[in-house]
């Protein structure tokens, strides 16, 4: 046995091992090849038993060749193992295909009612301008609902608010959110910027545009220099926030508790100002009433009308929601037909 023949044996062995590794059909065969070539009783070790017959100077050279063969076989086995793994995985994944065009598993979410949603939208806009939310009672007294708002008993303007009365003397169901103005003024001092959302009641037969229960949002701002121009600027911002960039119109209105009084219109959302049945062909839709707080009201609120001035506004939430969502009938809101509510996804 000489160096040449021994090294030739090792090379032949390497070639055979590499061929067999490449042809191994499964991980188990690779396991057997591992044992056959690389274990302590494997073929490489067996070949190296002949090393003792070699001259001393050749032994390290043969050792180096044997190491190289061993590494090459290990690498071949690893490569084949990776290859086999990839094949198996590809096959498994191929079998797991699904129809990705099927509809998903439904996640059910309920919907939110347009009245509180609209109130939230209104509160959001005015909140930006420092208006803070207060809430007043719905079972009010005549004093706060009418008298302190400059409507003494038998005032003809009371006809504008047909009233529901309850079996508690002197009490009624508030006909508007305006009495909240009084409660705010009596409980805090200027500067005041207050928003009062809530439910109101009127003695009114129900049809597509009237209801005996409805919702309003009232606003009140009082300070030393608060003016009609401030009101106009603020309402313009509000209208633009809720209805987009439309023209607005400020015109005289009438409320006993404001002087001057204002009606605030936006360009018709149906016809964009051209004129249509929805806006009585005027091109305008009234969205709220407002005005400078009447000195009588300030006095009842404990505020000196010579020093302070302010404005108030009030809007129907249903009216705003109607215009935003094209709701055709006021009765939809309190009827709660899910076919209506579920449209507010």
């Amino acid at each position: 046995m000489d160096f040449e023949s021994l090294s030739a044996d090792l090379r032949a062995l390497q070639q055979r091992a590499l061929d067999e590794a490449a042809a191994a059909p499964d991980p188990e065969s690779l396991e057997l090849l591992q044992i056959r070539y690389l274990s302590k009783k494997g073929e490489i070790t067996t070949v190296l038993r002949g090393i003792g017959a070699l001259p001393a100077e050749d032994r390290p050279r043969v050792g180096a060749i044997a190491n190289a063969v061993s590494e090459a076989v290990k690498a071949a086995l690893a490569a084949r193992e990776a290859e086999l793994h990839a094949e198996v995985q590809t096959f498994r994944l191929a079998g797991e295909r699904v129809d990705v065009t099927l509809p998903g598993r439904p996640r059910s979410r309920g919907t939110l009612h347009p009245i509180p949603e609209t109130m939230a939208a209104i509160a959001e806009v005015f909140g930006r301008f420092g208006f803070v939310v207060y809430e007043g009672p719905e079972v009010e007294d005549d004093l706060t609902n009418f008298q302190m708002l400059n409507m003494p008993p038998d005032h003809p303007a009371r006809d504008l608010w047909d009233t529901l009365y309850v079996d508690i003397p002197g009490r009624l169901l508030r006909t508007h959110t305006s009495p909240g103005q009084m409660r705010v003024m009596q409980s805090t001092k200027p500067p005041i910027r207050a928003l009062l959302p809530g439910r109101c009641f009127r003695y009114e037969a129900v049809d597509a545009s009237h209801g005996f229960e409805f919702f309003q949002v009232e606003g009140l701002m009082v300070d030393e220099g608060t003016s009609l121009a401030d009101l106009k600027g603020l309402l313009d911002e509000f209208a633009h926030a809720l209805f987009g960039p439309r023209k607005t119109r400020f015109r005289p209105g009438y409320y006993p508790f404001t002087e001057p009084s204002v009606a605030f219109d936006v360009e018709c959302v149906v016809c964009d100002g051209v004129g249509c049945p929805a806006c009585s062909r005027s091109g305008w839709m009234t969205i709220l009433g407002a005005g400078m707080v009447h000195p009588v009201v300030l006095q009842y609120g404990g505020i000196d009308p010579e020093r302070y001035q302010g404005f108030a506004f009030g809007m129907g939430v249903e009216r705003i929601a109607n215009l935003r969502h094209a709701v055709p009938d006021l009765r939809y809101y309190l009827e709660n037909d899910l076919r209506f509510l579920e449209q507010f996804r």
Binding site: T188, P191, D223, T226, A229, K232, G233
Partner: peptide, 11 residues
């Protein structure tokens, strides 16, 4: 009437 945003004190 001009339109401008209130420039008075905040509550």
């Amino acid at each position: 009437t001009p339109a401008h945003l209130p420039a008075t004190l905040m509550p």
